[in-house]
Amino acid sequence: NYDPRRVCLNPFPEISLGKHRRTVGVYLAGALFALANWTFLDAAILSAHARSPWGQPDTPPPVHVTFVDWIPGICSLLGYLVINMIDKDRVRGDEGFGDSRAVWRARLFLFIGFALMAGGLAGSVTVLILKYILNGYPEQFTYYGYANVSQSVALMLSAIVLWIAQSASSEYEYNLTL
């Protein structure tokens, strides 16, 4: 059922998993979410308790986690919130219920959410390269940048897992009710 008027098709994964898969998916998404934020907080706490680099006990630590490092994570978190607040059935394009503008608006907000998450990821990579790698800090301090990137990646994975888990279950319900 291909509609040529639609420019942007949303290929939802048509997976019909059991009930337990949904539960496991939600748990997994929560674990990834917590892991993402704790990874970055680890870097922040480590920076707050930073010691001098290995070998030279007299020099102070050359770099700290500042507000710049927090921005990508905040963007990713906002995107995560926006994506998960959208009713999945609206985006799916069942225009039978409600007004048809709702579908359009839901897709717009979904786009904004994904753009925020992708922006967070891109921003974290930017911070990693510009602030840590190009300045040639020792590995002890580049870890802050890597933690930032892994926070964004884990948040994205968490959103994907949560989305798949929830849409898989709705498929299951649909099969059951028919």
């Binding site: 748990y27 998404a29 929560g30 674990a31 979410f33 680890d42």
Partner: peptide
Amino acid sequence: RFFTSIVVVSGFA
């Protein structure tokens, strides 16, 4: 469930 797993992982992390 989401919050449960967040809190449990936080407890270990």
